[in-house]
Design a protein around this nucleic acid. Structure first.
Length: 1056
RNA sequence: GCCCGGGUGGUGGAAUUGGUAGACACGCGGGAUUCAAAAUCCCGUUCUCGCGAGAGAGUGAGGGUUCAAGUCCCUCCCCGGGCACCA
């Protein structure tokens, strides 16, 4: 009898002692990753480990195939669930988390997984979240983390703001409470800046992800291509921008709508005749929760702005303007053109308020094979719109449906492609063409342009809760009041009034900056030392301290040298010249410069730069280059990119040159943009002070005030400003649960590194993750967030790949036997501990892989577990009872079917593990074992190979039998067996004989039988004779190695 | 409404490029073993008709392409998941 308890604990102990999994010295690598668990209070149920089993099978498979396998595990333990659990059970979240982790760990260890526990990580460990905070600071530096006070989703029960990704049908994903829109200060990550790249890299060519998850993410990002254009307001110098994807229907616009949040209402003020009514409507709309706005979507409401008309730029028609809450403030421009004939929502609204409907696109009938196909769907659509004013039954028979309905103004054709009518010069064009042409026309006129929009919004990143990473930010009032100083340095033969400098100063001063720009001496023959001491004097006389520095060209060089000496708030370099560039670099300008000029140019740059000092002294860094710059060639550019890519934001602009006086002043935009991100008074915690530890606190109940519970700890909150030394306050919001999990896979690679988030060399060695397994519920949250962070880390040079997860497979759920979800509430939870106790870890491993296709949700079956245990017993008994023989080429006593079956099994198991079809791999092993069980004598070598391919699924029993065979080294040290292709092919096959495509007989035949012989055999068969007798054979189809199909027809006897 | 999956015995599910539908397992029926039960082993198990050989039907429904369709095409129904007033 197989004693699983004894065998499993014995080997688990031995494996752990020998560290057999931690073999990282092989040439090829494989990184297998599980979505790390959230250690909840309930412990594991049998559904949780399914994915872990799969990665473990895969990891062992890869180890046996000679790979170094990284297979780590850790804990994702910050966030609301742990905190809510702690609140309910009146314990500290840390204590709860620690206790839960201990339980989870004990449970997981019983499975015999190949985890390297030395790499265990925990997101709540300060040594870990130090780097979560570090990433946040880097984002803040680059303007990707910003404060906003726009309305956000607020959960009144959890008392915290939430990201869009945290909602389910307008309810809080955690507690099911209705979400409110609340205006409050919050931290937001600019995820939309990455929308394009997040979408573009979601490509089957680049990522081996399942279609369902790819499409879910694509939908979430929600890219749409359209046109943004302006509708002028009649009699006023005002306009509203609208966004549409259907500009081809613009001649059908009969009114326009702005959202309740739209600024136009305030701009027009009492020019709106019914302002009171309008304001009342807006007030009511704002009171609605997100849910109410969706629940009430059937009834559209709105109010006309009386006395106000908008003008359609295409035909100068004047149209009424409405405010209505079916238009969303946060998408597009917050205003739309309404075309009731071709948009269902506008159609509903127009019907209700009796607005005119103008039909401008009809279907392209040539595209439909039959009119019936088109009209059946058209009629369906009409039915769904409660179309009652005409008899559908009669319409079904009338192909003149379109014209008829046109005259009654009710037909809607909603298709994206059609032919335009009633559209001026665009009439007769296809929709597609018209969209192109109309966009061109608008662009030419300067009234609009093509625009891409995304549904995805920026990530609301702050939580007004306790149990999360503190956001490492300090608010300083004194710094907020202080004027920021900006010093701008010009270049060779330039001055402070030329180029982009005056425009930049104007822009910055209007934003409250104090700017300085001076004319350097001898700009014809600049001498570095002269310029340097000149500027130092100016810094002293104007008392510049902690200022921003901008330098262009040679001024950029100067700026860098100043940065070695002075503490800078920020450093912006526009096309800076280089440092000690090689002679070849200067020689290439000998055509443009004479000897004297060349020597001035060279001498100015003839010094070294202390890069470390610059980095230490400088806050944010922005480098801007033009790709068409004749002076700053790619070699100079690369010098800066190589040395500063981790600390500086570097932009290389396609169509720009040296960006000096001769270039368009507009180019100042990009420099000015760089200053937008610095909000005065918002001070990052200095990197050296990380981790900013979460302080202990008496009560961590949420306050509901918009401040986190941390606000109550005054001696933590009140702090000296690291910038000015004055009194300042810490940020009291914490990060959301999804922060720590957005980069954890990197930390496993180098979990104890104190200097870096991950060692560069190690990162390059292990990334990307080769196989990532986890639940599909993370498709639009964790996986999106992690990809976003990863791309950011790529941009700052912290990681070497653009995408983190090469192959992603989602694990199907395990439901309870009653078909419901496993839940405490239903009392149907199955604890893996009990299954392991009764049947062993190998049984649960094998069962969960055998129960069905891996990605599919399937109900648990107690009987099923018994079944696979029966299989394991059979394997065990095989090794107890059979006679094992050594045989080289052939053995007489061994049934001849065994070797081919073994090779088929090796082939199938190899292929099926690779494609994650574990269920069929196991069934093939069962077939093999059934065959072997029937024999008395078995070849030892075959059984050894079988144990190796069984071992990824059932490692304990395989290892035990392996050692019982007398092997001294562990089974994981073995090589995965290869199959012999010749053995896999059957020599004798059952050739199927069909008559008129119905199988009537099968004959045993050599696999390579040709058509002629097959027909001969077939004709000899009594069964076949019976079916073709008296018939004429009209055709013979022969599929080699498979079947023969005789097509025979009844002979029709004709009598004359 | 839109976007992804999926629909095969009593159950979980197999089925290469279209080529014997139901592998493997569970359950069930029968038998062996046992004082008996559990466990184990053997046989059977898509449905209908038939003692049987065998015949017919059959992969959600209907239609089509083909010598041949679970597989490809069209229309529709149902189930699961995601999104949802995104202009």
């Amino acid at each position: 009898m197989y004693n699983h308890k004894k065998v499993e604990s014995k080997w688990q102990q031995k494996w752990e002692e020998s560290g057999v999994y931690k073999n990282y010295s092989k040439e090829k690598k494989f990184y297998a990753l599980d979505m790390f668990p959230y250690p909840s209070g309930a412990g594991l149920h049998v559904g949780h480990p399914k994915g872990y089993i799969a990665t473990d099978v895969y990891s062992r498979f890869m180890m046996l195939n000679g790979y170094s396998v990284l297979h780590p595990i850790g804990w994702d333990a910050f966030g609301l669930p742990a905190e809510n659990y702690a609140l309910e059970n009146k314990v500290h979240p840390r204590a709860a988390v620690e206790k839960n982790i201990a339980v989870f760990k004990k449970q997981l260890k019983k499975f015999g997984f190949t985890y390297d526990w030395d790499r265990e990580i925990n997101t709540t460990d300060p040594e870990y979240y130090k780097w979560t905070q570090w990433i946040f600071l880097k984002m803040f530096e680059r303007g990707l983390a910003y404060e906003s006070d726009k309305p956000i989703n607020w959960c009144p029960k959890c008392k915290t703001g939430l990201a869009n990704e945290d909602l389910e049908n307008g309810l809080c994903e955690r507690c099911g409470t209705k979400i409110e829109q609340k205006k409050m200060r919050q931290w937001v990550l600019k995820m939309t800046e990455y929308a394009d790249r997040l979408l573009y890299d979601l490509d089957k060519e680049k990522l081996d992800w399942e279609d369902s998850i790819l499409s879910q993410q694509k939908n979430w990002i929600g890219r749409s291509e359209g046109v943004e254009f302006e509708l002028k307001i009649k009699n006023y110098e005002l306009g509203i921008k609208v966004y549409t994807t259907r500009i081809d229907t613009v001649f059908g616009m009969t009114y326009a709508v702005v959202s309740p949040e739209h600024k136009l209402i305030d701009e027009l003020g009492d020019k709106i005749e019914n302002l009171g009514e309008v304001k009342k409507y807006i007030e009511n709309a704002n009171k609605k929760t997100e849910l109410e706005r969706t629940e009430l979507q059937k009834e559209k409401t709105g109010v006309e702005l009386k006395g106000i008309k908008a003008v359609n730029p295409f035909n100068n028609e004047e149209i009424p303007l409405f405010v209505a809450d079916y238009v969303l403030g946060y998408y597009g421009t917050g205003a739309v053109m309404a075309v009731p004939a071709h948009d269902e929502r506008d159609w509903e609204f127009a019907k209700k308020y009796n607005l005119s409907i103008k039909h401008v696109v009809e279907p392209d009938y040539n595209k439909f094979n039959t009119k019936d196909i088109f009209f059946s769907s058209a009629i369906k659509k009409r039915e769904s719109l409660n179309f009652k004013d005409s008899a559908i039954e009669t319409l079904k028979y009338q192909y003149s449906i379109v014209r008829k309905c046109q005259s009654t103004n009710v037909f809607c054709y909603i298709g994206k492609d059609g032919i335009l009518l009633n559209s001026g010069k665009y009439s007769g064009m296809t929709s597609e063409k018209a969209r192109e042409e109309m966009a061109k026309w608008l662009e030419k006129k300067g009234a609009g342009k093509k625009k891409v929009n995304y549904k995805m919004r920026d990530w609301v990143f702050s939580r007004q809760r306790y149990w999360g990473e503190p956001i490492p930010i300090i608010h300083c009032e004194k710094c907020a009041e202080k004027k920021e100083q900006v010093l701008i340095l010009h270049g060779w033969e330039d001055n402070s009034k030329a180029g982009f400098i005056p425009e930049l100063r104007k822009n910055l001063e209007s934003k409250g900056y104090e700017t300085f720009a001076f004319d350097a001496p001898n700009t014809d023959e600049p001498d570095f030392d002269e310029w340097f001491s000149f500027i130092e004097k100016k810094i002293k006389t104007h008392n510049l301290k902690g200022f921003h520095l901008v330098g262009h060209s040679m001024g950029g060089h100067l700026a860098l040298k100043l940065a070695e000496k002075y503490k800078l708030e920020s450093l912006t370099l526009v096309a800076p010249v280089g440092f000690q560039s090689p002679d070849e670099y200067f020689n290439q300008f000998s055509g443009e410069m004479d000897k004297k000029e060349l020597s001035i140019f060279k001498k100015f740059q003839d010094r070294k730069l202390n890069i470390k000092k610059v980095k230490d002294n400088t806050g944010k860094m922005y480098f801007v280059f033009g790709k068409k710059d004749p002076w700053i060639t790619s070699e100079i550019r690369n010098y800066y990119i190589d040395n500063f890519k981790e600390t500086a934001e570097i932009a290389v602009l396609e169509n720009y040159g040296h960006m000096s006086a001769d270039e368009n002043i507009k180019k100042v935009d990009f420099i000015e943009n760089l200053f937008k991100v610095s909000t005065p008074g918002v001070i990052p915690v200095p990197e050296k002070d990380l981790p900013l530890e979460l302080p202990e606190v008496e009560g961590y109940e949420p306050t509901g005030t918009g401040e986190g519970p941390l606000a109550k700890i005054t001696d933590w909150v009140n702090i000296k400003c690291p910038k000015c030394g004055g009194p300042a306050k810490r940020e009291t919001n914490t990060m959301p649960q999804w922060a720590g999990s957005s980069w954890y896979y990197l930390r496993y690679i180098d979990p104890k590194n104190k200097k870096e988030l991950v060692d560069k060399k190690e990162e390059k060695e292990w990334m990307p993750v080769d196989l990532y397994v986890g639940g599909a519920e993370h498709a639009t949250r964790h996986l999106l967030y992690a990809r976003f962070w990863h791309k950011f880390l790529y941009d700052i040079g912290a990681v070497s790949t653009k995408e983190p997860f090469k192959r992603l497979v989602h694990v199907g759920l395990i439901n309870a036997e009653d078909g419901r979800k496993m839940s405490k509430r239903w009392h149907n939870v199955i604890n893996p501990d009990d299954i392991i106790e009764a049947y062993g870890a190998d049984s649960i491993r094998l069962y969960e892989m055998f129960m069905g296709p891996f990605t599919q949700s399937i109900a648990w079956s107690a009987e099923g577990v018994k079944g696979v245990r029966r299989f394991l017993d059979k394997v065990w008994n095989l090794f107890e009872s059979k006679k094992f023989v050594e045989c080289g080429g052939s053995c007489q006593d061994v049934p001849k079917e065994i070797p081919p079956s073994l090779h088929k099994t090796i082939k199938k198991v190899t292929e099926d593990i690779s494609s994650m079809r574990f269920n069929t791999a196991i069934s093939q092993m069962m077939i093999f074992v059934n065959l072997v069980s029937a024999a008395d004598t078995v070849p030892r070598a075959a059984m050894e190979k079988f144990l190796i391919i069984l071992s990824p699924f059932a490692p304990h029993i395989a290892e035990e039998l392996w050692s019982k065979l007398g092997n001294k080294t562990g089974i994981l040290k073995e090589k995965w067996p290869e199959y012999n292709p010749a053995m896999v092919k059957d020599e004798i096959i059952n050739l199927v004989i069909q008559v008129n495509s119905k199988t009537r007989d099968t004959i045993e035949a050599p696999a390579d039988i040709n058509e002629e012989d097959a027909v001969k055999f077939a004709r000899e068969s009594e069964k076949i004779k019976k079916w073709i007798e008296g018939k004429e054979v009209v055709k013979i189809i022969f599929v080699k190695g498979r079947l023969l199909n005789i097509v025979a027809k009844q002979i029709i006897k004709t009598t004359i």
